[in-house]
Simulated scan of single mutants.
Amino acid sequence: MATTYKLVFAGPVGAGKTTAIQSLSDIEVVRTEASATDDVKQLKQTTTVAMDYGLMKLASGDQVRLYGTPGQKRFDFMWDILTENALGLVLMLRGNAPDPVADLRTYVKEFREFIDRTSLVVGITHSDQGGWETRRLVAAELEALGLPPSVMDTDARERSHMAQLVKALIYGIDPFNGTEAH
Rank of each mutant, 00 (worst) to 15 (best):
A15S: 15
T48E: 06
L66V: 11
K109F: 06
R117Q: 13
N85D: 14
D39V: 12
V13A: 09
R157N: 06
A15C: 13
D99S: 05
K167N: 10
A163I: 15
D174N: 14
G95C: 12
D26H: 08
A97L: 11
P100Y: 09
T18D: 13
V151Y: 00
E33H: 06
G88T: 15
A10Y: 05
L7A: 01
L120K: 01
Q22H: 09
T179P: 03
T125M: 10
V121L: 06
H182P: 12
G123M: 12
L91F: 03
K17G: 07
G146S: 11
V13N: 10
M51S: 07
H182W: 14
R31P: 00
A10H: 06
V166E: 07
G146Q: 12
A181R: 10
K73E: 14
G16M: 12
M162W: 02
N96E: 14
D155L: 12
I124Y: 02
K73V: 13
R157L: 11
E143M: 10
D39I: 10
G68R: 06
S23F: 01
P149D: 13
R157Q: 09
Q45P: 05
T37W: 05
V101I: 11
A15I: 15
F77D: 04
S127V: 14
D155G: 03
L87G: 02
A10L: 09
D80W: 07
Q72E: 13
G16I: 15
S150Y: 07
E33M: 14
T18K: 08
D38A: 13
I115Q: 02
A102S: 08
V101E: 03
T37G: 10
W79D: 11
F9V: 13
T46R: 12
D76H: 03
V30W: 04
R159I: 13
G88F: 09
M51A: 06
V40T: 15
R31W: 01
Q72D: 13
G71A: 11
Y5V: 01
T37H: 07
M92H: 05
E141C: 03
K41H: 01
A20R: 03
L66G: 00
K41Y: 02
R94N: 08
Q42H: 06
F77C: 03
S35N: 09
M1H: 02
R112N: 06
T118D: 07
T32C: 09
H126Y: 10
V108M: 06
S25G: 05
G61L: 09
L104H: 01
D76E: 15
K41R: 11
W132A: 10
T48C: 05
G178W: 09
L120W: 02
M78K: 01
M56K: 05
Q63P: 00
Y5E: 08
L58Q: 06
T106R: 08
V151C: 09
I81N: 01
N85Q: 10
G172I: 15
L120C: 03
A97K: 02
L165K: 02
T125N: 14
D39Y: 03
L87D: 10
G88D: 11
K73Y: 00
Q42M: 12
R94M: 10
E28K: 04
L66N: 01
D174S: 09
Q164P: 04
L145C: 02
A20H: 05
V29Y: 08
L93F: 04
A50Y: 06
P175K: 09
F9D: 11
